[in-house]
Design a protein around this nucleic acid. Structure first.
Ligand SMILES: NC(=O)c1ccc[n+]([C@@H]2O[C@H](COP(=O)([O-])OP(=O)(O)OC[C@H]3O[C@@H](n4cnc5c(N)ncnc54)[C@H](O)[C@@H]3O)[C@@H](O)[C@H]2O)c1
Ligand SMILES: NC(=O)c1ccc[n+]([C@@H]2O[C@H](COP(=O)([O-])OP(=O)(O)OC[C@H]3O[C@@H](n4cnc5c(N)ncnc54)[C@H](O)[C@@H]3O)[C@@H](O)[C@H]2O)c1
Lengths: 255, 255
DNA sequence: CCATCTTTGTGCACGCGTTCACAAAGACAT
DNA sequence: ATGTCTTTGTGAACGCGTGCACAAAGATGG
């Protein structure tokens, strides 16, 4: 998963487990697709497949929201779409500001999936005076000086940070001081925020590193298994034997 | 967290828990920063703070890699950087292809954080003939027809998908068929892949929806508590009372 | 060499999340 | 009305992840 939430110490918000909340958008997406195809009802099995999860998990997830299914039939698609939307707070509009209109920020601003789910880009903000006033995705880029005013006037509670890492904490502090209580951070830094403020991060580099780990493991597996079976010549065996904690590796980094 | 991994049923790869693997890049980033400041050693407490985690968790994480610390002193920064890099497979170069060079794909191509950690953009691929040959981040965009050849020739095992959702599964299938075994998916779709292929997804929309959920909860909290204390007039009380499973809500979605 | 002090490494307990498996609910046919 | 068949909702068991708390390791100073 390309996301990691900040430590929210097992806060079951109104009885809905955090893990379930994270899956609701997935169900919603699958349900919306069914709704567009005018499918009236769907079974937990079908929906689970569409959402890429286990059907028992899906049923348990829905059970936290209440009993919205009909035994022998399944779930009413429209009704479920409404219930999940309501639970996620998508029946209202959420004004969002994006700070840092560079490569990534501009891509985010142009992203259609934003508006499609009740999120409205209230403003684009950048510190570079050369950017100020430029139109990105039809919106004028505003200068950082106006940040507080924009947040307050538009009642923005969700902020997206797409600045370089060095500027992220400062931007975060200003957003929070101005009233933002939820932050989506694309900069590769750990943000510290006061209690009551949620931070979620998206870090491409971390995702790739996790993939690399598994990739390496896959590559080493065949070799490793061969070693275990003793079907390799001695030399290859030693090469495959990863240096263990016994420390026969150089204490310097080769790069 | 903006990331979700696809169902890897508790595969403790070589005894390192998945949760630990996901944190290693975080530690590595903090350690690299210390290394650049020529800090020789660091305690679990300091490093944990820098990485935004609990110190006990960090120590336990490191214990899976072996005993690399010195009691009473802490961890040798350079040595730890090397060990984690090795564990994550970052001592080798990983060629990566990006498919779908639109707003997002171009931003990713321009992203510096790619190359800084052993990931090398081997090629940019797009289906639009108008894009073919255009330079993005100094690399020429190649046409989808060449996908298989590019992947095979460059021994690419990691692919990034930044196409529209509708094209993602097809692109995924082609990447996998050509030999890619790890995929980072930015398109809002569930990808189905054969066993042995890892998929991680980054979904901005899901992240925002999770934030919206908590945001809504925060907003409703004061009101909800007031209701519980019975300090609200009847009308407001009923308005605050969210419709329960008893179903006094319309079965249609208001939007 | 001994005492003291710092910090690691981990045993242990607890809670969350996942999954199995099944009873009961309800649709539908007869 | 009764029986059959499908599918939900959930009890219960299990495993993973987290965090506390502490013993042991080792550095440091006398
Ligand atoms: N581009 C990607 O694909 C990508 C991927 C993952 C993470 N990131 C991260 O996202 C962030 C942005 O990446 P990018 O490629 O768009 O960088 P960029 O340099 O293209 O854009 C950064 C923008 O932030 C603005 N900025 C700088 N300081 C600011 C401040 N204090 N207040 C407001 N705006 C400020 C700059 O003027 C610039 O327009 C970086 O932290 C990067 O590491 C980018
Ligand atoms: N832009 C964002 O911030 C953002 C955020 C989250 C998710 N996404 C998702 O990322 C994807 C890309 O977003 P975008 O804004 O860059 O869209 P875009 O339309 O700007 O770019 C899509 C690119 O993919 C190419 N393409 C289409 N079909 C292809 C195929 N079969 N093979 C190869 N290339 C193909 C198109 O030619 C185009 O260049 C979308 O699925 C979007 O939902 C984007």
């Amino acid at each position: 998963m390309a996301t990691g939430r900040t430590h929210r110490p097992a806060t079951r918000s109104r009885g809905i487990p955090e893990a379930t909340v994270a899956r609701l958008p997935l169900y919603l997406r699958a349900l919306t697709a069914l709704s567009e195809r005018s499918v009236p009802t769907v079974s937990s099995e079908e929906l689970a497949t569409a959402a890429g999860v286990n059907s028992a998990k899906l049923r348990k997830d829905f059970s936290y929201l209440g009993s919205y299914g009909t035994r022998g039939v399944g779930y009413d698609v429209e009704y479920l779409v409404y219930q999940i939307s309501r639970e996620l707070g998508l029946t209202q509009d959420w004004p969002v500001v994006i700070v840092g209109i560079g490569n990534l920020g501009a891509a985010l601003a142009n992203y259609g999936g934003f508006a499609s789910r009740g999120f409205r880009v209230a403003a684009l903000i950048d510190a570079d005076p050369a950017q100020t006033g430029k139109l990105v995705a039809g919106l004028p880029v505003r200068h950082t000086d106006e940040l507080e005013e924009i947040v307050e006037r538009n009642q923005v509670s969700i902020g997206v940070i797409a600045t370089p890492a060095g500027a992220a904490q400062e931007v975060c502090d200003r957003l929070v001081a101005a009233g933002v209580t939820s932050i989506l951070n694309f900069a590769p830094t750990v943000l510290s925020v006061p209690d009551g403020v949620d931070v979620r991060k998206v870090d491409l580099s971390i995702e790739l590193q996790i993939l690399a780990f598994h990739e390496q493991r896959k590559a080493g597996e065949d070799l490793g298994e061969a070693v275990a079976r003793g079907t390799l010549p001695k030399a290859a065996e030693e090469a495959a034997d990863r240096p263990g904690p016994d420390g026969d590796v150089p204490a310097v980094m080769p790069a």
